[in-house]
Structure formats: structure tokens, C-alpha cells
Write a protein that binds this DNA or RNA. Structure first.
Length: 207
DNA sequence: AAAACGGGGGC
DNA sequence: GCCCCAGTTTT
């Protein structure tokens, strides 16, 4: 079976087990900020930090004017709060100065922003603009390698390889399903191969 | 390619 | 205390 066919099967199988998560917010700025807050951070903590921030500061203009220490305190649950607060305000200022306060919708423009790498940029493309992209985090990276879909050292290479072999109409689903799969079954340590719905497509022995 | 960065939360 | 967490930046 070709890698493309295996990806199609994987998406099919995982789609039986997991619900595709809905877009929680269509405001591109909030999506961008939330995604920065989500870096190396669990969803619950990300949500809390995001809600804290936007409960007090409504939009990009209020965020840039806010005292940095205040932003830090609001987003503290997300961790890395000093770096993230600085980057959020930096990014916001750039968006105001160079993009009229709007979030750009291309990968090239997004990755130029401080604190925005390919993973975050692709998240914005998907969750803010519903454009096809594959945000590759540690889950997608790990699983793609375990399942022999790619043989790569870093997530950016995984993203480029997956983009070549995965049908474009599956990109968004593929990412979302693989993340849930990684969080619940194909975990970093002690993957649950016994109950894995796609073990028949996988040679990984769990070690 | 590898190391540095940098915090909360769970166990 | 130690390890993981929907990474990014610097060396």
C-alpha cells in the first residue's frame, strides 16, 4: 500500500474514533494569540490564559496599550508567560504598523512574526482562515515517524514531507485527528498499541 | 543538528 | 523532584 493510501486509511479509521474539533473562534487575531499561548502548553491552560486575556482586553489595540506586567499575569496559566506576553505585544504592534491591524493569511508573512514558527503559522491558516495546511506539532511528528509515513528529524521536515504525500483535502483532518490520537492512544511513552485502531497499518513495536 | 529557552501542572 | 506539554530561537 502506498503512503498516500495509508494516510487515507488512517484518517478514515481515526475519524471513527475521534470527533473533529470545531473552530472555537473565527477572529484571526484571537486565533493567533491563542495559538502563541498554546505553544508547549496543554489545552486547558491555554484556554484559561486566553479567556483571562480577552476578558480584560477586547482587541489588538487594547492589548498593545496594556501594561506588559498585566498581560503577563493574565496569561500566567499558559506558562512561559514573560516571553509570550512580550511576543504577543510585539506581534500586535507589527500587525498594527504593517498590516493595518489585520492578521496576514500567508505562511511567508506569518512566520516572519516573532514567536511564530511554521506550526503556529499553519494553525492560523487552518483555524482562522480555513486554508489547507498541516500544523506539525510533536504528536504529528512522532506519529508520522512511528508509522513510517516519513523519516524525519524535525517537525518542519515532517510537514513538508506530509504535504507531498497527503491529499490536500485531508490536511486539516489529518492534523486534528493525529493530535487527538497522539494525546490519547499513540502517546509519547507507553503507547497503547493493544487498543490502537490503526495498528494494522503500523510496524511500530511500541519501543 | 543540537542546545537553549523557560513555566505550569500532574504524579 | 522529575517529566511532559498542539514550539521557537539561537548557537
Amino acid at each position: 500500500m502506498s503512503k498516500t493510501d495509508r494516510i487515507i486509511k488512517i484518517v478514515e479509521e481515526l475519524n471513527e474514533v475521534f470527533e473533529i474539533r470545531v473552530f472555537l473562534d473565527q477572529d484571526p487575531y484571537k486565533v493567533l494569540v491563542r495559538t502563541i499561548l498554546s505553544q508547549r502548553t496543554r489545552d486547558e491552560n491555554t484556554d484559561q490564559a486566553t479567556n483571562n486575556l480577552f476578558a480584560k482586553y477586547k482587541d489588538i489595540y487594547e492589548v498593545v496599550e496594556a501594561p506588559t506586567e498585566d498581560i503577563q499575569e493574565l496569561i500566567r496559566p499558559a506558562g512561559f508567560y514573560r516571553v509570550k506576553a512580550g511576543r504577543i505585544q510585539e506581534v500586535s504592534q507589527i500587525l498594527i504598523d504593517e498590516y493595518g491591524g489585520e492578521v496576514p493569511d500567508t505562511l511567508d508573512e506569518l512566520v516572519k512574526l516573532p514567536g511564530v514558527g511554521r506550526k503556529t503559522a499553519n494553525c492560523v491558516l487552518v483555524f482562522a482562515f480555513e486554508l489547507p495546511a498541516i500544523p506539525v506539532d510533536t504528536h504529528v511528528h512522532r506519529i508520522s515517524n512511528r508509522m513510517g509515513l516519513v523519516n524525519t528529524k524535525n517537525p518542519d521536515d515532517t510537514e513538508r514531507e506530509l504535504s507531498k504525500i497527503a491529499p490536500k483535502e485531508l490536511w486539516i483532518k489529518l492534523n486534528d485527528l493525529m493530535v487527538q490520537f497522539g494525546q490519547n492512544i499513540c502517546k509519547p511513552t507507553s503507547p497503547q498499541c493493544e487498543t490502537c485502531p490503526v495498528s494494522y497499518l503500523c510496524d511500530y513495536d511500541g519501543s
